[in-house]
Structures are given as structure tokens and as C-alpha cells.
């Protein structure tokens, strides 16, 4: 990999992280009643999204949907079979309960995501229309129905809203 390709990958990661951080900062500002500060965080977040997507495109990271689904499945599989299990064990060893549960909650959702992408890769244009729900607390993903309480974090159904694309 050339230095520039590595720089593009680093920049993509950094811009992606900035996007999510700024959205979290915007929510915090809104909670503090600072609407104009929140707006600036959201504006910057939108800009960082454009940067991230530009970097990804130049890197050749966006292909046809069949290939994108394979890449997505690979990423999700890596997360729940390798990355998060190791992170969970490390958090346990360090006694960091919050980190352990944060990793575990993400790990459970990644398993669902891989299956969701696998079905999409199998059916492609023949996929049935589905409704999805995402837990606002832990990110667990549900297809067509949400439980009374999130199976991962026990958040009530009211915190598992229908996902609107």
C-alpha cells in the first residue's frame, strides 16, 4: 500500500470518527440548551461526512453492491468473531465493566448485521420489504418487530424506534 493510500485510510477513519463525535457533542450541547453551538457541531459533522465519503471513493472503497455486501459481511464477521471477543476479555481482565458491556452489546448487534447482509447478498433484488428497529441505547437491530425490552440492554420498546431511512 502506498503512503497516500495509507493516508487516505487514516483520513477516512479520522473524518468518520469526527462525524460521530460531533453528532454526540451536538446532542450534549442541545441537552445544555445551547442550540446554536449544537448547530455548528452538526454542520461540521455533515462536512466531515462529505470528506470521509470522498476519501473512501478515492481509495476505491465503494464497489458494486454485491462486492459491498461481501465487504460488509467480512467487517461484521471480523468484529464479532475476533475484534470484540478479544476486547471483551481485555476489559474483563482490567475490570472495566462499562467497556465490557459496551463491547458485548456491539458484538451482539454485529452478529445480526452479518446475517442481515448475508440474506441481502443472497436475495439481492428479491429481498422482501422489511421494517427495522434499532435500540437507541445499545444499537441492537431488529427486523419486522421489536421486543418489549431490548434483548441486549433491557431498554423498553419505547426506546427501540422504527428505523426511518
Amino acid at each position: 500500500m502506498s503512503d497516500t493510500m495509507k493516508n487516505l485510510a487514516d483520513a477516512f477513519a479520522g473524518e468518520s470518527q469526527a462525524n460521530r463525535s460531533y453528532l454526540a457533542f451536538a446532542k450534549a450541547a442541545e441537552d445544555e440548551g445551547l442550540a446554536e453551538v449544537a448547530k455548528r457541531f452538526r454542520v461540521a459533522a455533515a462536512s466531515e461526512t462529505v470528506h470521509a465519503l470522498n476519501h473512501l471513493k478515492v481509495m476505491g472503497g465503494i464497489k458494486d453492491t454485491a462486492a459491498n455486501l461481501v465487504a460488509a459481511m467480512g467487517g461484521e464477521n471480523h468484529e464479532h468473531t475476533s475484534m470484540y471477543p478479544g476486547f471483551i476479555e481485555q476489559a474483563k481482565a482490567e475490570g472495566n465493566e462499562d467497556a465490557k458491556f459496551s463491547f458485548w452489546a456491539a458484538n451482539e448487534a454485529e452478529k445480526v448485521h452479518e446475517k442481515m447482509f448475508a440474506l441481502a447478498a443472497d436475495k439481492m433484488a428479491d429481498l422482501p420489504e422489511s421494517t427495522f428497529y434499532v435500540c437507541e441505547v445499545c444499537g441492537m437491530t431488529y427486523e419486522n418487530d421489536a421486543p418489549d425490552a431490548c434483548v441486549v440492554c433491557s431498554a423498553p420498546k419505547s426506546q427501540i424506534p422504527e428505523f426511518v431511512a
Partner: peptide, 23 residues
């Protein structure tokens, strides 16, 4: 189990601390 976790009411509890963990 996921089946029992889906019936858990901890998420609605007024005493539940601010954390993802429940059940």
C-alpha cells in the same frame, strides 16, 4: 438468554442507573 432478556423490565425501572447493562 435473549428470550428472557426480552421480557426483562429493568429498562423501565426508576432505579436503573445510567448504563447499558440491565437484566
Amino acid at each position: 438468554t435473549f428470550e428472557d432478556a426480552a421480557r426483562c423490565v429493568c429498562g423501565r425501572c426508576p432505579s436503573k442507573p445510567e448504563e447499558m447493562k440491565g437484566f
